[in-house]
């Protein structure tokens, strides 16, 4: 990679208490319904009440996470905002579609329609920050966050000082049901903490919002640097192995998107076998499966690189120090595969 990219600030709202200070001292939350919903914070300190009343869940999650990320970075001047989402605001979309049917295409409320558009979160952040810089939302299913990240890294290479990059996704009961009919989730109800020991078709549903302030210069506060990014669409095993060679051999641990879905485990098996005894750190038991779950994996990896440790309850095993290079590997139902190299600053 030509340019440098550092994570200067970050924030996440997820099924775990990740928005709280000292979140790693809290016990991990779990579900036995195959749906891991986010633990939503009190939004009032971040969003004015008059705006809050109109926002749906994913808008509140996205805006609050982005504002906390900006505050965490200490960067005051707003710059480009680039995000990714697989589905955007499902709650608003469903509400709008239901109203079309109920009111026979008349007397339609404008708010759910306005907010159902994918770039609503970006717009809200820009309005809140009075930011008129580059603003883009990528909607590419399992590559949404990855394309936002790629675009952000290119912006940094082109000379931007910093870019706010993020991803947001929500699950609704209706969407959960629709996806259950096409085999996204496990048929048997499981404890999400035991996700990886249930080898059967499907996974558990999740959701979340994660934001990163990416910069072209490191500081003492930087969490990690992103030194490599590779996207592969429906790769054959040989192609995946060839991509892995780009990042090997000095990898201290692999953050793996393993999700208990027996139909696609062979990809993770390939990576695990390739890296031999290198520790594998799964994260889907914490956040569930969704289009932009790799953003949560990156958030977790960046924390590990800066703190050099994470509780065993979160990552399943003790990791030998120092942790200097982490490879994040994730794929979305066997189609969109991503490799992200994270390094200690």
């Amino acid at each position: 990679m030509k340019g440098k990219c550092y994570i200067q600030g970050m924030a996440a709202i997820s099924p775990q208490p990740t928005f709280e200070e000292n979140c790693f001292s809290s016990p991990i939350s779990f579900s036995t319904t195959n749906l891991l919903p986010c633990l939503e914070p009190d939004y009032k300190p971040f969003i004015p009440a008059n705006s809050l009343r109109r926002m749906s869940r994913v808008l509140k999650m996205g805006l609050a996470a982005s504002l906390k990320c900006i505050a965490d970075s200490g960067i005051k001047v707003s710059g480009p905002i680039v995000t990714g989402t697989g589905k955007g605001s499902l709650q608003d979309t469903e509400k709008f579609l239901k109203e079309i049917v109920t009111y026979k295409e008349t007397a339609l409320n404008p708010t759910p329609f306005i907010q159902s558009t994918y770039n609503s979160v970006n717009g809200l952040i820009a309005l809140q920050q009075k930011c008129t810089a580059y603003n883009n939302t990528f909607v590419h299913r399992g590559f949404s966050f990855e394309n936002a990240l790629l675009d952000s890294m290119m912006l940094l290479q082109e000379g931007e000082d910093h870019v706010l990059t993020g991803a947001f996704e929500e699950i609704t009961r209706e969407h959960f049901y629709i996806k259950s009919r096409i085999g996204f989730w496990k048929e048997e109800q499981i404890d999400s903490r035991e996700l990886l020991s249930h080898h059967s078709p499907g996974s558990v549903a999740g959701e979340g919002a994660a934001f990163f302030m990416l910069t072209n210069q490191p500081t003492e506060k930087s969490y990690a640097s992103i030194t490599g990014l590779k996207l592969l669409y429906k790769p054959a095993t040989e192609k995946l192995l060839s991509a892995l060679q780009t990042f090997a051999p000095a990898v201290d641990a692999v953050i793996t998107g393993r999700n208990g879905d027996s139909r696609f485990d062979h990809f993770y098996d390939t990576v695990e076998k390739y890296f031999g005894n290198t520790p594998q750190i799964p994260f889907k038991q914490l956040c569930g499966e969704y289009d932009t779950a790799s953003a949560f994996g990156m958030w977790l990896g960046a924390h590990l690189l800066r703190a050099q440790e994470l509780p065993q309850a979160w990552i399943g095993q003790p990791i030998a120090k120092p942790v200097n290079r982490l490879l994040l590997y994730n794929h979305f139902y066997g189609e969109q595969h991503v490799l992200i190299m994270l390094e200690r600053v």
Binding site: R54, Y103, T106, A107, L108, N109, P110, T111, I114
Partner: peptide, 17 residues
Amino acid sequence: LGLDSIDSLELMVLLER
């Protein structure tokens, strides 16, 4: 109440519904 222009559209919808 400090309502805005979006609210006015919603109130129009309320009258209609």
